[in-house]
Simulated scan of single mutants.
Amino acid sequence: MKDYNFAHKLLAWYHENRRILPWRDTHDPYIIWISEIILQQTRVVQGYDYFLRFMNRFPDVDALAAASEDEVLKCWQGLGYYSRARNLHAAARQIVEWGGFPERYENIRQLKGVGDYTAAAIASFAFGLPHAVVDGNVYRVLSRYYGIEEPIDTGHGKKYFAAMAQELLPEGKEAADYNQAVMDFGAMQCVPKSPKCEDCPLVDGCAAFRDRKIQELPVKSRALTVTERYLHYMYIEVGGEVAVFRRESNDIWKGLYEPFLIETPAACAPENLLNDEKVPSFIRSDKVVMTYLCGGVRHQLTHRTLICDFYKVELADKPDDFGRRVCWVKKEELSNYAFPRLVVMLFEKFGLW
């Protein structure tokens, strides 16, 4: 279907209200790619400074490809979803190996970590190709305006909206502006809560406004399941050096560093923690000075609530029975390493770096 009135009003709104952003008004696929990956699960107001910092450190794909993973993760620190940074790094090396940034949607889609939305955005904004973008903003605008109750979190629903967005896409040079327009409109006007219906240029044709279903659309079929995890961090210091560990498993924060960690299946009081079999024997020694700094610190991730207790452990000598590879880092050099935001907050709260 082609709804020229819908597209015309959106484009008119966009030309008056478009956001001025450093990744706009460029056809450089590297710049567009970096911005899209940063903004996948980050609001523009949060991602703006991270984008500038990332581009300053890695101004082109060659610089990104040549960097170490630790360098990339450190620059990404605080953005979360660290698999995005690792995928960026791997994809940069793909691009260098291929001899340049791919210019067709199908080839862009083959880059590590690039899905349908990101490939469509790069193809549209960098190369002017007629591919519609579909993100959370697009789902919300289309479902509300056309009164669509198809769930957006099912395979069928995603295909339905993708096909609809493609049909609505104007032809020719307006396609890229239209893609930007519908995303900006969802981010600025048709927001999730309290949308600005009173001055909306689309309100006359909006089914959700007419039927009073604004807060019911878009529809999701499944509620988000959030699990709780109980973390006990031990800041172990010996003679001005601190024991840190790199997370290697396919879990949250892969590739980032953290203090010594014990995870328990449920909350565990400080007086009971030493009985846990995961606690190394040297921590139970009478010579150890162990201080309980804080407990019950809650840190929210998308699918998990982390509940953290934090201890400081002072030792006279470096132990050798951690059970995993340890890095001893001078306290003043801790800030050179990439830590999860939760750990950074704990370090800052107690002046530990």
Rank of each mutant, 00 (worst) to 15 (best):
V242N: 01
A243H: 00
V244Y: 08
V244G: 04
V244R: 05
F245W: 04
F245E: 05
F245I: 03
R246W: 09
S249G: 11
S249C: 12
S249Y: 12
N250L: 15
D251E: 15
I252L: 15
W253V: 07
G255N: 07
G255L: 05
G255K: 05
L256W: 01
L256G: 01
P259E: 08
P259G: 01
P259T: 00
F260T: 00
L261C: 08
L261E: 06
L261H: 08
E263D: 10
T264P: 07
P265M: 06
P265F: 06
P265T: 03
P265R: 07
A266D: 15
A267Y: 15
A267R: 14
A267K: 15
A267Q: 14
C268R: 06
A269P: 12
P270W: 03
P270I: 01
E271T: 08
E271Y: 07
N272K: 15
L274D: 13
L274Q: 11
L274I: 07
N275S: 14
N275F: 12
D276A: 00
D276W: 01
E277G: 08
E277T: 11
K278A: 12
V279R: 04
P280Y: 07
P280S: 03
P280R: 02
P280K: 02
P280D: 04
S281N: 13
S281C: 08
F282E: 05
F282G: 01
F282R: 02
I283S: 07
I283C: 03
R284E: 01
S285I: 05
D286F: 03
D286H: 08
D286K: 13
K287M: 10
V288T: 15
V288D: 05
V289Q: 14
V289C: 13
M290L: 15
M290G: 09
M290C: 15
T291R: 11
L293C: 09
C294L: 12
G295V: 06
G295W: 01
V297E: 10
V297W: 02
R298L: 10
H299E: 11
Q300L: 11
Q300V: 13
L301P: 00
L301Y: 03
L301I: 01
L301T: 03
L301F: 00
T305G: 13
T305N: 15
T305V: 14
T305P: 07
L306P: 01
L306G: 05
I307C: 07
I307L: 09
D309S: 02
D309T: 04
F310P: 03
F310R: 00
K312H: 10
K312P: 07
K312D: 06
E314W: 02
E314Y: 06
L315M: 03
L315E: 02
A316E: 15
